[in-house]
């Protein structure tokens, strides 16, 4: 049993992180907030790097890697708040021409919503009569549709991977702030009340990590349901606590904390309802 990242997997993760650090840094993030719209150049770069074709067999022009590698890539995307219909386009690789290379932007109906409908070249699922929402997340335009769509288990897992990235990033941001922000003559991170918030963020993120990575290995629907619940919890609860650690600054627009929280909220609406994941896990006990 070697339930840890291989050298190749570490290299892949570091490679994706390097690419995203170069191409979607903090400046790019705020530029995207100021001028909403999908960066097609970046999208094609992601395609060229194999982000969408990662799991496509090499014979079909893909990278030929598996779900664990895709999970690592999506975790990195989640960390930096990379915008766009990443999961839908990744799932369309091989099925929709141009999706694998990033030439085609693919959106999908998921959970009564379509993300990035207006920017997409192709929409999968029944999106007729879609009504735009004023999206809570400035980096995810949303349309409301009547159809719920049938949740794809890989989509659920890749979303969990993004949530994991967010949970990890939220913990890092909280720790960075707690180490530097001083009150009462010391860094606020020296106060146990703040320390314990940060520790719990890490505990939730690392528990979710074990569940998400294991589900990527087994692809068992019950494992995926568990990964989803724990990753949603780690991301939503973690970004909330991150905001709390930031105090008043966390409530401002200029702090990036709210962007992480809002994205975590958007992702937690994907797939079927949380209660359905809980029912899958309950039914497993009854079996």
């Amino acid at each position: 049993m070697r339930f840890r990242l291989t050298e190749d997997q570490r290299a892949l993760r570091d490679g994706v992180r390097g690419l995203l650090t170069r191409r979607f840094d903090r400046e790019a993030l705020w530029a995207a907030v100021a001028a909403p719209g999908l960066d097609r150049v970046l999208w094609r770069e992601l395609g060229a790097a194999g982000f969408f074709a990662l799991r496509l067999p090499e014979a079909d022009g893909g990278v030929g890697l598996g779900l664990p590698e895709a999970v690592l890539a999506f975790e990195e995307a989640g960390r930096v708040l990379l915008p766009g219909p990443l999961v839908a386009t990744h799932l369309a690789a091989g099925a929709v021409p141009g999706a694998a290379t990033g030439e085609t932007v693919v959106a999908a109906v998921d959970g009564g919503l379509v993300e990035w409908l207006a920017e997409a070249d192709v929409v999968r699922g029944e999106a007729a009569g879609a009504v735009p929402l004023r999206s809570v997340d400035p980096l995810t335009p949303l349309h409301r549709v009547a159809a719920v769509g049938s949740p794809d288990s890989v989509a659920v897992l890749l979303t969990a991977a993004e949530q994991l990235g967010t949970a990890t990033r939220a913990c890092e941001l909280a720790v960075q702030h707690a180490r530097t922000r001083e009150q009462f003559g010391q860094p606020i991170g020296a106060f146990q009340a703040v320390k314990h918030l940060c520790a719990e963020m890490l505990v939730r993120a690392e528990t979710a990590r074990a569940a998400v990575y294991a589900a990527a290995v087994t692809t068992d629907p019950v494992d995926i349901a568990a990964a989803r619940l724990l990753a949603d919890e780690a991301a939503v609860h973690g970004t909330r606590d991150c905001l709390q650690v930031h105090g008043g600054m966390g409530f401002t627009w200029e702090s990036e904390v709210h962007l992480h929280l809002k994205r975590a909220w958007v992702r937690s609406q994907r797939g079927s309802a949380n209660t359905e994941s809980e029912e899958i896990l309950a039914a497993d006990l009854a079996g």
Binding site: M1, R2, F3, R4, E206, T207, A208, R209, A210, A211, Y213, A214, V222, D223, A225, A226, L229, L230, T275, S277, E278, E279, I280, L281, A282, A283, D284, L285
Partner: peptide, 25 residues
Amino acid sequence: LRRRLGRLNAEFRALWRLTQWNVSE
């Protein structure tokens, strides 16, 4: 109650995976 037990299933599955992770490390 049923969903609470479902959540606990997620919890203990994850704890088992975390154990396997720690052991592998």
